[in-house]
Design a protein around this nucleic acid. Structure first.
Lengths: 152, 152
DNA sequence: GTCCGTGCAAATGGTTTGCACGACC
DNA sequence: GGTCGTGCAAACCATTTGCACGGAC
């Protein structure tokens, strides 16, 4: 069986996170493992409810509270990026837990993570013109994804 | 009495908005006028509660609901920019109601609006690399403002 | 065996909604 | 005078918290 690059990367991500969890003396429960697996599995920026429904297939008694708590743990470990939206439709990136630009479809809510070259320059320009010490950012671009453009 | 550029601009903003309100056959109540005045008055990106407390000095019976409804009206008229944050600490920009980058102090929450040259190029790069049709954006840079840097 | 994590239920808090009175036009 | 806006209170809903049981170590 051949493996794609993303699958291999996902496994690296998983073991990296599990190591961190153990190092910090957090317990590795089956529920936590399932939640972390789900967050690292795809490139689809799941919501809390997405993760909850996925994990509940393995652990039918799992509660949303546990998902929230595990995500809070991963945030503390800097191993998940939270994309909070003011309407409460929050999404999570378990693959690239550092700030980076997102393209967000206003219709189907699909999120993409392109590699963008000029982010550092923009950050530097902000620093110069405001005097702020920029430590992180949030860059969202909204519009229609290719698929939703076709359907219109 | 001399007037600064920002004062003159604020008056232009006000009359522009009032014209739009009347054109669309919305009623110009004293409460609405006070709320709109507060939103275009300063450059300090007030919260709903900031506006509420300010307006309540003139109209002690004003309720938060009225402030929310008026802000919703202004959003529909594209005359206020909402900076929603997932923790509920939403802020409003009545001076530049179009998307633009913000520098946000993580300590005192002060927000600045520098003129940034390379936004259009970044937007274009996103469009090229994702195939999305970018129609608006949200660009936030977080760090310490000059004042909070000194206090640290 | 200890203590942390889970899962249920209740609390939280900014925002929205329903409704009756009052005011803009 | 008709209808929209106001203001009060209740509803809303994702998330957080309290607590007792059960499981990781």
């Amino acid at each position: 069986m051949t493996r794609s690059k993303t699958e291999i990367r996902a496994e690296d991500r998983l073991s990296r996170i599990l190591t961190k969890v153990k190092e910090r003396d957090f317990r590795l429960t089956p529920q936590r493992l399932a939640i972390i697996r789900t967050l690292v599995a795809g490139t689809d920026h799941p919501s809390v409810d997405d993760v909850y429904r996925e994990v509940r297939e393995q652990f039918p008694t799992t509660s949303p509270a546990t998902v929230y708590k595990t995500i809070a743990l991963l945030k503390e470990l800097n191993e998940v990026l939270e994309l909070g939206f003011p309407d409460g439709s929050n999404r999570y990136d378990g693959n690239r837990p550092y700030p980076h630009p997102h393209a967000i479809c206003t219709k189907c809510r699909k999120i993409m993570d392109p590699e963008i070259s000029s982010v550092d320059e923009l950050s530097e320009e902000m620093k110069q013109k405001t005097g702020y010490t920029i430590s992180f950012h949030r860059l969202d671009f909204f519009g229609l994804c290719p698929e939703c453009q076709r359907k219109t």
